[in-house]
Structure formats: structure tokens, C-alpha cells
Design a protein around this nucleic acid. Sequence first.
DNA 1: CTGCTTGCAAAGTGTTTGCAGGCCC
DNA 2: GGGCCTGCAAACACTTTGCAAGCAG
Lengths: 157, 157
Amino acid sequence: MRDTGQVTTSTDTSVEVLTTELRRRGERVTTARLAVAEVLAGTEEHLSAEQIALRAEELRPGIHRATVYRALDALGELGLVTHVHLGKAGTTYHLAGELAQEHQEHLHVRCTECGAVLDVDGKTLDPVRRKLQRDLGFRLDPEHVALLGICQDCSAS
Amino acid sequence: MRDTGQVTTSTDTSVEVLTTELRRRGERVTTARLAVAEVLAGTEEHLSAEQIALRAEELRPGIHRATVYRALDALGELGLVTHVHLGKAGTTYHLAGELAQEHQEHLHVRCTECGAVLDVDGKTLDPVRRKLQRDLGFRLDPEHVALLGICQDCSAS
DNA sequence: CTGCTTGCAAAGTGTTTGCAGGCCC
DNA sequence: GGGCCTGCAAACACTTTGCAAGCAG
């Protein structure tokens, strides 16, 4: 499949919203930040900082890895970008809920055997969240870490 | 409080069981592995590899960091030692369930604001575990990662 | 003795930081 | 034009690995 660039994609929309949001908060809209935003808006995958840097480099050559980290950090502070810790497998980033178009809220579950990452209904941890809130006053962020275990295929073998 | 060394502590028991288990499986019982085991048996804290290395060095000077990693890995393979991923805060190790004396099964919850780690009843994720098993055939390891969120104190401020 | 384990040093990852110059607003 | 952001390089924290010597069984 080839992107003809002829249609207004949801990618454009996300980046537009993000731009507006940056301006509204007095933050600077820079080439590097836009590139990172475009990369994130242009995929449904879970990307590592490294992968984002590579793709950003394709969009706008010359963007440095350190800048990508700083951009992700800045956008994270503003709540526009979120990350998920995958245990030993590192960290992945994606646009925050409101900005992500195709995706609905979900959490991640990773197989420690084969590395596969599965998506699970975002409400799966709601009862746990309520329990922690009630018992400890702890406000759980259900999507911040991937749960670990063994997937069906790996259990079988 | 001072350890007079006059009583048989649960630490001794844990190390003893671990030793037996190693022998039973044809694995070698070495100074380094014993030191690591003693460190883990001697505390209820969650220790990083670095901390374990430091304490092991006190017990038996000359134990190298790399050896600690290898020992933790070996004991982990055998199911005698477990680790918990704390997100950005790294990884901590402890004796596996049967060997840990004082502790009962529990999961960890970490505040991303202040870093505090709270213990939660190990059965908290049981419903989730059953759901994942049923829906996806995924066997959840509830204690392998710490859940993240904001603790009561940090919510208040 | 046989070969698994260790110590050491070095190389890998993944991420952060100090600094000088550049670009956004 | 002022100051935030970037590129670069170096530093960092954490973990892994190749190798020769050492010790467990």
C-alpha cells in the first residue's frame, strides 16, 4: 500500500491538535517535536524511543536521538504522549488517549517467553483500581505498565 | 539491634533449603551463590542487583558484580529467586515464594511521583488472572511487575 | 580431573546532561 | 532579541560477554 498524500489523514488531525495544544500552553512548536508527533500519529504500533528516532530521522533528517528523548519527555509532561514500561523489553511511547484516533483505551500484556504483546480491554483493571483507591488511597494508572506472563502459544509448547 | 549469631535464624533455614535444592538439581553450590542467597534471605526489603552486590561484598569480599548478575540469573532459572520490574525505577530481586519466610505473597505498587513501593495482597489480581486465562489463554504472573500510579500522599499535595 | 563458575575488563544498551549555537515567538 | 530547543559529544547507569584461571563435584 502506498500513501499518495492526497487525503487528509487522521495523522494530520492528531498533529494539528497537538500543535494547537502546544501553542495554547506557550510551548514551542519545533521541527523535532512535530517529527516525533507525526511518527507517533502515523502508526498504531508501540514504538521504542530508538524506533521513533529512526523514523523521525527519515521524515526530517538531522534529528538527534537526544532530542527525541527530550521531545518525548516534554510531550509527556504535557500529557500529550504516554509511555508503557514493558519490563525487561524496555519502554514504548504513543500519543495520549484523546489524540490517538484509531485506538481505544487498552492495556498491554506481554509474554516473557516470546515477547508478544497483546492488547486487553482498558477496563480490565478497573476493579483493582477501585480497590487500591479505596484501601490505600492509591490512584492506579492501569496502562503505565504491561502485565507479564506466558501466552497461549508458549504455554502449549 | 545486634545479631549475636547465637540462634538459628530463618535466614539459615532459607539458605539451607536453597543449598539442598541446588544440589538436588546437580547445580553447584558456590561461595558467590551462597552470599547472594544469604543477602536475600537476610532482608525483607526489595533489593536491586547493585545493592545485593554491595552486601554480598561485605559478607564475602571479592565477589564481583557480574557474578552477582550471573548468580541471580542462575537462581532465577531454577525458580529460587524472583525479580520485580519497577518501571523506570529498575529491577529488584527476592527469594521465591516457598523460600521467603517472613513474607507472604504480595504484589507491588509503586508511586511514580515519590517512588514509594507499597505491598498489596497477592490475590488482588486473581480475577484479572482468571479473565486473561479464560479470554486469551494467557497465564498471568501477577508479581512480575509493579503496578504504577500516585500514592495518597502525592495525590494530596 | 572435567568443566561449570568466577573475576576482570571491556563492550553493550538505553538514557541523560553540559555546552555552544540556532530558531521560535 | 531573548530564551527555549537542538545537535553534538560525553557521561551515565545498568547489564552482558569473552577469556583465562579457579574451584566444586
